[in-house]
């Protein structure tokens, strides 16, 4: 397992608030989307928000018991906790209706290995897209503003190089230079994020399978496609 992964888990266990905030930023939208999907229209926005926060609270209590060496994805484990929070909420609602209810289910470590088949591929795909979005966000923060704007206009918005040059009042070679800088930064951040959030060999290989390790043209194309999918998914959530 990559050193970044283990150090990040250690930061979570040490109650590093910025690590938890990062976790919330990366996985929060996915979690809300999944809860909304399970709720099937029965849960409102506020309830979903509360449930996602309860999920993180439960995660913070049980992070000590998470064992990365068992080969289970962190995202799968997170999903199990979210399901637990969800079922708890449903039980509570039923209890309120009937005046009584079932005892809440206790979180068990068995869940870590028992959800593999239940987790659908779409969820894992969303998790991967969220990682890419986090890498873009981090690259945006660390790269030069002009370079990233050029990359955004040229690649993410799909504008021609000439058009971007006219809009920004610079030459096309300057545009190419900015593109190279931004791309370099993106590759670095993507590697970093994937290494941090990948707990299994399959997760490590996801970026390569998605075409993010190819040449510049393939990289840009794959990144833009993933980014647009991630953005539209979040707007649905």
């Amino acid at each position: 397992m990559h050193q970044l992964t283990t150090s990040f888990v250690r930061r979570l266990r040490d109650r590093d608030e910025s690590a938890w905030f990062e976790l919330w930023q990366v996985f929060g939208p996915i979690l809300r989307g999944q809860l909304m999907k399970w709720g099937n229209g029965r849960l409102g926005q506020e309830t979903v928000r509360d449930l996602s926060q309860e999920t993180l609270a439960a995660l913070s209590k049980s992070i000590e018991r998470f064992d990365p060496t068992r080969g289970v994805r962190f995202s799968t484990w997170l999903l199990a906790i979210a399901r637990h929070a969800m079922s708890d909420e449903m039980d509570r609602r039923m209890a309120l209706k009937r005046g009584a209810g079932k005892r809440p289910i206790h979180l068990q470590e068995d869940w870590m290995g028992g959800l593999g088949s239940a987790v659908d591929a779409a969820y894992e795909q969303k998790i991967f897209e969220a990682k890419v979005a986090a890498a873009i966000r981090r690259a945006e923060a660390s790269s030069d503003f002009m370079s990233f704007e050029v990359y955004r206009m040229r690649v993410l918005d799909g504008r021609s190089g000439k058009d971007v040059a006219v809009q920004l009042g610079v030459s096309q070679p300057t545009i190419s230079r900015h593109l190279q800088q931004a791309r370099r930064e993106l590759r670095t951040r993507l590697t970093e994020i994937v290494a941090t959030w990948s707990f299994t060999p399959e997760e490590m290989a996801e970026a390569e399978l998605a075409g993010l390790s190819g040449d510049d043209m393939l990289f840009d194309e794959a990144l833009a496609e993933i980014w647009h999918r991630a953005a539209s998914m979040d707007s649905e959530c």
Binding site: P29, A133, I136, R137, E140, E149, M153, Q167, A231, D234, S235
Partner: peptide
Amino acid sequence: PAHGNLSRFEIECGDAIRW
């Protein structure tokens, strides 16, 4: 802006305003 600075623009408002 759900994605902060990376939020997408769906409505045409000109490059300068986006900038």
